[in-house]
Computed example of a mutant assay.
Amino acid sequence: MFTRLSSSYFFYFALLGLTSPYLALFLDGSGFNSRQVGEIIAIMTVTKIVAPTLWAILADITAKPLLIMRLGVFLALFSFALLYWFTTYWPLTFSLALFTLFWTAVLPQLEVHTLNSIRQSSKIYARIRLWGSLGFIVIAVIAGEAIARFGYYAFTSIGVIILGGLFITTLLITPKRLKPNVVIVSATASVNSVKTKASIAKPSIVKKLLERHFIAFFIAGLLLQISFAPYYGFFALFLRDFDYSGLAIGLFISVGVVAEIVVFIYMGAIFKRLSLTSLLVFSLAITAVRWFMMPIVADSVFWLTINQVGHAASFAIYHSASMKFISSHFTKTQQSRGQAIYLGGVYGLGGAVGAYVTGILWLDGQGATSAFIMAGSCALLGAIVMLFSQTRKTTRTV
């Protein structure tokens, strides 16, 4: 079981290690300008806003999450393979949007099956999830060198191979046999659960959403995701323009992932020492420094590496603190809705807006400095918003 689940996580995040850094490189090699690249990434990001919920509902209705996961991988593989033939703007955009639509079916169902299989053991889950991070690092390094040697066409072939590997691993996963009266984790509330709890009224979430502290938290998260657009979408192109090799690009990207893994390990101790708002402000401030410094340090291997280590604060600390914030802000019956509103709004809307604006500013590399200044300004504004919210309301410690 451990090997099969770990392999699935490895291949899933390996694909992220390909698409997240190198999609823009592939699109640039395909002849698209930076504005078109930003538009394509924005369209893909918008797809992520509603698709996970739709797939989760379908999984609950059918009560066959493994089938949904396998179907998602197979259709994602088919859609991704269309890149061999779709080379013009709209057909290629359609295939990538379709790929994203099906791809979002995979991780929620994999998470559900994994947690049910290991009986909610956080220790075993951490060991399995670690293979996902390793997959990202390995492919980020290999793909960078492969694309540099064989051209942007290698992007599609690597993606098809990874998706093929993932599909095989999902076929090897066996359904969890349920004992009578055992309740499993579900991606959304099951139909039976809704019926049995119909008499229990869920408290309105609107009041929680309109609290000043949450509004500040939401705006700060939105600004952070907008600020990440030059990094997530155009970083590989940025380093290529500084004449770094494909291997070097992959290694720089991996430094950030390794740093976040280390911080994730020690987040429990960090939470005991600092308040959530302090951690959020710190993360946003460090992120602002990273983006402002990026054009300045890009030609120095040493300082660029140091700048990449800052990803531990930009992502790991902020993500952990934001999840803790949501957990403490909403009641138990509001958790799912709170998560959906936050993730859909912040990651979906923020990512789409950031990608579109960055595509306009990038100007095929000539506007890279302007794009990172925009990013740094957004992160700094987010830090100010969170700092202001702290002066208005004391953050609850958790």
Rank of each mutant, 00 (worst) to 15 (best):
S278N: 07
L279S: 00
Y125M: 09
T331I: 01
K207Q: 09
P203M: 00
S133N: 04
E111D: 14
L16H: 13
A140C: 12
F167A: 13
F99M: 07
T104E: 13
Y9D: 01
L171R: 04
P21M: 12
F80S: 04
A140M: 11
G344S: 05
K197C: 05
L166C: 06
A143H: 11
I43N: 01
V301C: 03
A312N: 09
I296D: 11
L251E: 12
Q339K: 03
G31C: 04
K207P: 08
I373R: 01
L178K: 14
I142W: 09
S199T: 13
F102L: 08
S133D: 02
L98F: 11
L209I: 02
L98N: 02
Y9G: 04
F80C: 02
I68F: 10
V346Q: 03
G72A: 10
G38N: 06
K48Y: 09
H311I: 08
T170Q: 06
F86C: 10
K176A: 07
L23F: 15
A313H: 11
Y152L: 06
A259Y: 15
F26V: 14
G132T: 05
L66W: 11
H319V: 09
T369R: 03
I341V: 04
V106A: 04
T331C: 00
W303A: 06
G344A: 05
L92K: 11
M1H: 08
S314A: 15
K197P: 00
R127P: 01
Q366T: 03
S327V: 08
F11P: 05
Y347V: 10
T62L: 07
F218E: 10
T114S: 10
L67K: 07
A76E: 06
A259K: 12
K202H: 04
R35K: 05
T169V: 06
L224F: 12
V185A: 03
L83G: 12
S157G: 08
F271V: 05
N33S: 01
A97R: 09
W362L: 05
S327E: 15
S190A: 00
T305F: 09
I265F: 14
R240Y: 14
V309H: 03
S245D: 08
F271A: 10
Q120N: 14
L92Q: 11
Q339N: 07
I158L: 14
I317T: 14
V183P: 01
L166P: 02
A248P: 05
P108L: 00
S95Y: 09
V398I: 10
L349A: 05
I261G: 01
K393M: 09
H319T: 08
Q366E: 06
G350K: 04
K197Y: 14
